[in-house]
């Protein structure tokens, strides 16, 4: 497994595996987006309580899944970069942290737009919203740190360390925010929370899963594309270094 991953760090080999993967997942993502959007916007019923606003769920909830999933993948990559020194894993963090931040931003913004008709306000200091906001800060920190050093390798290592410590810290944040929320929660929010989290009906599950699949394949396609960009820019950098010093 680790040898196979290591072999992928060879750019030529990476392209051989990556290019077909890129095309297949782009096509799958486009198809799932078309199907999922049709289901979500046209072919599914409006909710009894929330009317049309329930349709926001189909882009909001999968974005939350992607935001968390991307972070776990960053932490895993950080581990394999720091322990087994897989260069590709280090580059993965740099490549995919902005994608994770984008999904987190989508989750926050659509959640806020969803909150206006259902809660009557753009922002509620709900435990989940607050946790996602903190997750966004974590992503922002990783992106900023990875770019802050003149020495590229040092930036990769620092970003990997931050991803790892952040992963350890995530349960603490989650616990503290939940605890804080029950301490300060106004009673009205909990009833609204139930309204937003209805038992998911089957007519809702299919569009939800279709959109989740569309996001996932988009994520894979972006991972291949952005990783290859990172590999190329690393090569350009080291060629420049050789010219300057050799």
């Amino acid at each position: 497994m680790s040898n196979a991953l290591f072999a992928l760090a060879n750019p030529a080999r990476f392209r051989k595996v990556g290019m077909p993967l890129l095309w297949v997942s782009s096509a799958a993502s486009a198809a799932l987006f078309a199907w999922g959007l049709w289901l979500a916007l046209l072919a599914s019923p409006a909710d009894y309580l929330q009317q049309e606003a329930v349709r926001i769920m189909y882009i909001h909830v999968p974005a939350a899944w992607m935001a968390l999933g991307t972070y776990s993948s960053l932490a895993f990559a950080a581990l394999s970069f720091l322990i087994w020194r897989h260069t590709l894993a280090g580059l993965y963090i740099r490549a995919m942290a902005p994608v994770g931040a984008a999904f987190t931003a989508i989750c926050l913004i659509t959640g806020s737009i969803w909150g206006q008709p259902t809660w009557g306000t753009w922002w509620v200091w709900d435990a989940r919203l607050t946790s996602v906001l903190v997750l966004f800060f974590l992503y922002a920190g990783i992106i900023a740190l990875a770019d802050a050093f003149e020495n590229r390798e040092r930036g990769l290592k620092a970003a990997a360390w931050l991803s790892l410590i952040g992963m350890v810290n995530l349960p603490v944040i989650k616990f503290s925010v939940d605890w804080w929320n029950t301490l300060h929660q106004p009673p009205s929010v909990s009833s609204f929370a139930r309204m937003v989290e209805p038992a998911v009906d089957k007519s809702m599950l299919t569009p939800l899963l279709a959109m989740a699949g569309a996001y996932l394949f988009l994520f894979i396609a972006l991972a291949v594309l952005r990783l290859e960009s990172e590999i190329m820019s690393r090569r350009i950098e080291s060629a420049r270094m050789r010219r300057n010093h050799g």
């Binding site: 920190g141 740190l145 802050a148 050093f149 360390w161 410590i165 810290n169």
Partner: peptide, 23 residues
């Protein structure tokens, strides 16, 4: 320690540390 050697020290540190300071 993470931000050692960067030029934008203070602002970067604030950004890095917010999630850890929150609990």
């Amino acid at each position: 320690a993470l931000a050692l050697g960067t030029r934008t020290g203070s602002i970067l540190l604030a950004l890095l540390l917010i999630p850890f300071y929150i609990p």
